[in-house]
Amino acid sequence: MNIVNTIEEVRDKVKSWRKEGSTIGLVTTMGYLHEGHESLIKRAVSENDKVVVSVFVNPTQFGPNEDLKTYPRDITRDGELCESAGASLIFNPEPSTMYYKDASTTINVKGLTEGLCGAKRPVHFGGVCLVVSKLFNIVTPDRAYFGEKDAQQLAVIKRMVRDLNFNIEIIGCPIIREADGLAKSSRNAYLSKDERKAAVVLSKSLECGKKALNSGERNADKVKKIIIQKLNSESLAKIDYVEIVDSLNLKPVSNIDGNILVAIAVYIGKIRLIDNFTFKI
């Protein structure tokens, strides 16, 4: 697998591809890739001539008490997955390559970042937008692919791309799950055996909420209570949030009469996991 570490190498490779008339897809990751990332790469490979995968644990999206130092890393394993999925290039820079010591530019997408994960992680989406915009400028892809598991992130990036006039198509891809329903996540590697069993309660609680909606329940508080009740049945689970919001603007709704996002964040032991589903009337 061709792995490069500098911005100049990526730009030179992209320049040569453009001369050939190739289209370019981008999959941005923090590494320790799993089947969810693999599905993004394969989708990108099917829709573009060349695919760049960025592997970069981005320091600007981690808060002071979060897991930046311990976030799992394995570039050899990542390279094997990217090669088998058909990627053309991995961009694996150091933080010093991506950020000047005296950098002073920030990006803030107002309105979409205050709730859900943004409520407890105030620096997170600013860091996401900053690194993604830099990767867009470095790779200049035609299309970029993001998982729908990170639903708020996807909404924020779509808005940033619109507002800043990036000429890039943003494509959301379905959540990939384990056989028992747990959404694929790099942080699943942190879970102990007992915690891994307990983590299934996230998807099970969402199934309870989905069942209520499919049965005609339209009161958001009642649907949330059903989800919360299921989550509370697992002793290792500690709820961060359970929210039902408008799919477009991410504002909470009380009466469900349009397209909604049902999103949860739950601690299993010390590990924070997220999951969601969308529902359309």
Score class of each variant (00 low, 15 high):
S235W: 00
S203T: 07
N219G: 11
R177A: 05
Q229G: 05
N255S: 15
V253N: 07
I239N: 02
D194T: 14
D240V: 05
D246R: 12
P174T: 08
I226V: 15
A189H: 11
K222H: 08
K225P: 03
R187M: 07
V253A: 09
E234T: 08
D221I: 11
S233M: 11
I256E: 00
E217D: 12
S233G: 15
D194N: 14
S247I: 12
E207L: 05
K222M: 13
P252A: 09
I226S: 00
E195K: 06
I239A: 03
I226G: 04
E234R: 09
E207M: 00
A179V: 13
G181K: 08
V223A: 08
A212M: 13
V253I: 15
N214E: 13
G258Y: 06
R177S: 04
C208Y: 08
K238L: 05
D240K: 04
L206E: 05
R218H: 01
V245Q: 02
C208V: 15
V201Y: 01
S254N: 15
K204Y: 13
V242K: 01
S247W: 04
I226T: 09
D257V: 13
I226D: 02
K222F: 11
L202S: 10
L191P: 02
Y190I: 03
K222T: 15
L202K: 04
S186I: 02
L248Y: 05
Y190P: 02
K204L: 08
Y241C: 01
Y241A: 03
L236Y: 06
Q229E: 14
P252C: 09
S247C: 13
K193W: 12
L231H: 01
Y190L: 04
A179N: 10
G216T: 01
S235H: 13
R218G: 05
L236T: 09
V253S: 10
I239K: 05
S233C: 07
A189W: 11
Y241S: 08
N188K: 03
L213A: 08
D246E: 09
A189C: 12
E243A: 14
K193P: 06
A212P: 00
G209Y: 02
V245G: 05
E217P: 04
Q229A: 12
